[in-house]
């Protein structure tokens, strides 16, 4: 029994709103403090995406602790916030479900769940980031020449650049943009022995070949004419198992956000309706809602 109460107290402590207040306040201070190192030493942080968080910690992270400490503190606070959010929202959700019959309609009850949808979505997002930074594989510095292939070992596949089309600016309004590239399309063929895929790669238009995604980082030549340069593309190849989690987290968080706004709207309309009703109320005037009982 004693152990049960102890557990209950621990559960209550982790779900307390004052803990949220302290954690978020510390996170705000920590993030503001992180602005300076990130602005003046971006080269220390840029490799996180390429090498993953653990390898980054062992190299840049621990070796430049003066500049990276804020990030370690942030990760710790994020972990605390995740526990706090989970416990707090689970407690409140339990209470809401218990009192669901007191809501005027089922719909309003569902809308009332919106903050909890956002909280759980945020946790799914955090999980996605965690998986991504601990388990994602990145192939950096892969350069493809037209007609040439590169092979990947994990997952085993071959990527061939069939051709590269570049559009150059031809308008007259911007003389300094003349002959500069404004669009690039790389025609790729990917083969893993069982599957074959032909796709067009462009800026912000990656090619997916499960489980990898290929992103265009750079290409050449970016200007037409002048010094003749070979055509090539520089790609980032990612194998990120966390993307499904953080993208679905974002989607559900957005849904929760819309539901929250909807709930607020209904509340505002109800308040206005009550205020109007009170304004129209005149004691002794029969025929108005309250007196006639309509």
């Amino acid at each position: 029994m004693k152990a049960f109460f102890k557990l209950k107290n621990i559960w209550a402590f982790w779900g307390h709103i004052n803990l949220t207040l302290v954690i978020i306040a510390l996170m705000v201070v920590d993030l503001v403090a992180g602005y300076h190192p990130l602005k003046h030493y971006p080269e220390l942080f840029a490799p996180i995406n390429d090498m993953g968080f653990l390898v980054w910690c062992k190299t840049y992270g621990f070796n430049y602790l003066d500049q990276t400490l804020w990030l370690f503190i942030l990760v710790g606070l994020l972990a605390l916030l995740s526990i706090n959010t989970f416990v707090c929202t689970t407690q409140r959700m339990g209470r809401l479900i218990k009192h669901r019959r007191s809501f005027p309609s089922q719909f309003q009850f569902v809308l009332r769940l919106s903050p909890h949808i956002m909280h759980y979505s945020m946790l799914v997002m955090f999980c996605g980031y965690l998986i991504s930074y601990l388990g994602a594989g990145t192939h950096m510095g892969k350069v493809l020449l037209p007609g040439k292939s590169i092979s990947l070992s994990s997952p085993a596949c071959t990527i061939t650049l069939k051709s590269l089309d570049i559009d150059y600016y031809q308008g007259e309004r911007m003389p300094h943009m003349e002959r500069r590239a404004i669009n690039a399309r790389a025609f790729l063929e990917i083969d893993d022995g069982e599957r074959q895929k032909s796709a067009v790669l462009g800026y912000n238009s990656p090619v997916y070949f499960a489980p990898i995604s290929i992103h265009l980082k750079d290409f050449a030549p970016e200007t037409k004419g002048g010094m003749s340069r070979n055509k090539y593309i520089h790609v980032i190849i990612k194998n990120d198992p966390g993307k499904y989690y953080y993208s679905s987290g974002m989607l559900f968080f957005t849904l929760g956000l819309f539901m929250y706004l909807w709930e607020k709207r209904i509340k505002t309309l109800n308040t206005k309706h009550t205020e109007n009703k009170n304004k129209n109320y005149r004691p002794g005037r029969i025929g108005h809602g309250q007196e006639s009982g309509q």
């Binding site: 705000v28 971006p42 995406n49 990656p206 980032i236 990612k238």
Partner: peptide
């Protein structure tokens, strides 16, 4: 950021920290 660089966070933009600070605040 994901479509362009394959990751949802670009670690060389210091505004990312203050943007998140405002969101948390």
């Amino acid at each position: 950021s994901y479509l362009g660089w394959g990751s949802p966070v670009v670690w060389d933009d210091p505004l990312m920290t203050t943007t998140m600070a405002v969101w948390l605040y």
